[in-house]
Write a protein that binds this DNA or RNA. Structure first.
Lengths: 220, 220
DNA sequence: CAGCATACATACGTGTGTGTATCTAAATAA
DNA sequence: TTATTTAGATACACACACGTATGTATGCTG
């Protein structure tokens, strides 16, 4: 439960199990472990409290360190938040997009995306994007821009699938593609957050909600 | 320029230099006008920035006053936020629930609720509830409790309609009622916020999303 | 081992926002 | 008119969290 975040130590590939004995505390390893713990703590904090209400002292304490360690690993609060965004971005596409791409049928891909999103958001950092997007909307803050960038990526991806579905005739025509994509993502996030990770209803009802938006029959 | 609340008072030191036409307002009227302007400004601010990021100086300045006036009208920041919540609660049910109650058919009532919610949320204070609910979730703050109370009211109302629809056979059985109500509200809020008040798609797609959640055919 | 760099903790300075106390002007009441 | 209450502005005191500067211990390298 503690290690949603995998550190990217990148200190060679041959992590020897029987190499130079114990010496568990090599510097790079230690640093990466600390950084990972701080990142995870920060992600939880951002999800719970947002950016402005996030207190770095609590972030550090929850990770088992002090603010000194945090400011050693990250330039400042903004840098920390950006690192969380980057981590989220990578992890999300790793865990969600992979399954989506295996679906040749656009509608199936969109429903898979919805289910994958719901499953992904069962962890306690699910609300990081929505919290930050709400908090920074309408402002010109680096963190806000980064979150918005992630959001746009998701949007265009959905828009492409919607277009494909319409060309295939499996999604009925109607509102503009981007509008539909906005509603798709909105309904998805709203449903998933409201259900707060309670399986398996989150997955099912998220799929139902987006199916309603798309205008396709609910498969189950 | 669209004041949903009481329109702001244009006061100032050197105003109306050539036209003493409007006589001095009575104290009660003047006070109420000020309070309304501050409430509206605070609601906009809460919707945009949330509670923690809301700066009372900006609230006062946007309303055309100083913090002194604000602290004269409201006890403190928390009191101001609670007043906004109360205003929102009243206005919401006045503008939304009235139409819902005229629908005898549960499904029609739920869809009307969705549409009414979308229309209501076209104003710039639409995100007050979701912002505060996110910010205070998991904490024990008076404002959080108040917002949660409003949310619960909406939830139980939806739950009753869902039960009625199931008894009438117009809503298929499935997940527990409360779970469905959660998803209903979540999908509704998510869709509406994502579309950011762009009529008429917000209304239409909100109805589609909740129809998907409920498992009823989309009427349009 | 010396010395040096790294990881992290402690201590400090500063900005910013809240809340309160004081002060002025205007409205009501006598 | 004067006296009293009220609306609102200005000034002050305090807390809190950020960022930085400094201190200390532990790993690394010759």
């Amino acid at each position: 439960m503690k290690s949603q975040l995998v550190q990217q130590a990148r200190r060679g590939e041959a992590t020897e199990p029987g190499g130079p004995g114990r010496s568990r505390a090599t510097q790079a390893d230690r640093s990466a472990r600390t950084r990972g713990a701080l990142l995870e703590s920060a992600a939880r904090g951002l999800s719970r409290y947002g950016y402005g209400n996030l207190k770095l002292q609590q972030v550090a304490r929850d990770a088992g360190y002090t603010r000194g360690a945090l400011y050693h690993q990250f330039k400042d609060k903004q840098d920390l938040a950006l690192a969380v965004c980057a981590w989220f971005r990578e992890t999300y596409w790793q865990e969600v997009a992979r399954f989506v791409e295996q679906e040749p049928e656009p509608v199936a891909a969109l429903l898979t995306l919805a289910r994958g999103h719901a499953v992904f958001c069962r962890r306690d950092v699910a609300r990081v994007p929505i919290a930050l997007r709400l908090e920074f909307s309408g402002q010109d803050h680096p963190v806000g821009r980064e979150v918005e960038r992630n959001y746009e990526t998701l949007l265009t991806r959905c828009a492409h699938l919607i277009d494909a579905g319409r060309e295939a005739g499996t999604i009925p025509p109607g509102r503009p593609t981007r509008t539909l994509a906005l509603a798709f993502v909105g309904a998805l996030e709203g449903t998933v957050i409201a259900l707060a990770g309670q399986a398996p209803d989150d997955e099912l009802l998220a799929a139902h909600a987006v199916a309603g938006v798309l205008g396709v029959p609910t498969s189950s």
